[in-house]
Design a protein around this nucleic acid. Structure first.
Length: 209
DNA sequence: AGCCAGGCTACCG
DNA sequence: CGGTAGCATGGC
């Protein structure tokens, strides 16, 4: 199975995922981008359910806004994002990202600039580029590694960039496809491709790969 | 009760 | 350098 076939199977099974944004509708592109950046940071090693609560708290305190985040005290932000875990670190990360976002002045950030931000590593940088800016960067996370270590060509790259290169070289350069593909991978891993392998018997890739 | 979640940084040898 | 402890909540 090639990547396109794997994508088609997942899409057939789970359909369109519609990840972001969860609060702001599409009226204000700038706010939408910032919400996605906040989500990308808050979800680091954390279940999305908890992140949703944190984002909702920020929204209800009128803090889903770069300028307002910057002015607020770390302690207050930490309190609001508590459900997302690591709240002391993440409140600092949000401030660093808010400051960066404002200096962008509505331009698209480079991957290098994002990686220079404290609190942003490769996966978060690529998530921001792909989901907020619609730039064609394939997001590689623990789920991606788990599923592709198992199905298809049983990939076993070590470095993040090697994983990403494989997807970039074997898929059309289409951000919309990258976006949906990553979301579908996550969905399949939440339901079937578990760490404890308890659901492998129900994996529809078994019969194929 | 213990493991896991849409990682990253700092520090250690 | 490569490896790993620390960060922290909530769901199952």
């Amino acid at each position: 199975m090639n990547l396109q076939e794997i994508y088609d199977k997942l899409f057939e099974k789970y359909g369109e995922q519609k990840w972001w944004p969860i609060i702001n509708d599409c009226k204000d592109e700038n706010k939408k981008k910032f919400e996605i950046i906040v989500g990308a940071i808050l979800t680091q090693n954390t279940s999305w359910k908890n992140v949703e609560k944190a984002i909702k708290n920020l929204y209800e305190s009128n803090l889903l806004d770069a300028k307002k985040i910057l002015k607020e005290e770390d302690k207050r932000i930490a309190e609001l994002i508590k459900p997302a875990g690591y709240y002391n670190q993440k409140s600092k990360k949000l401030k660093a990202a808010a400051e960066f976002f404002l200096t962008l002045n509505r331009k698209i950030p480079t991957r290098e600039a994002l990686l220079n931000l404290w609190g942003v590593g490769k996966e978060t940088a690529d998530s921001i580029l792909l989901y907020a800016y619609n730039e064609p960067f394939f997001v590689v996370d623990a789920y991606t590694k788990r599923i592709f270590s198992c199905i298809g060509n049983e990939l076993n790259f070590v470095e993040y960039d090697e994983w990403q290169k494989f997807f970039h070289e074997n898929l059309p350069n289409d951000p919309r496809l990258f976006n949906e593909f990553h979301a579908l991978i996550v969905e399949h891993c939440k339901r079937i491709c578990l760490k404890n392998k308890k659901m492998c018997k129900d994996c529809f890739f078994n019969a194929i790969s």
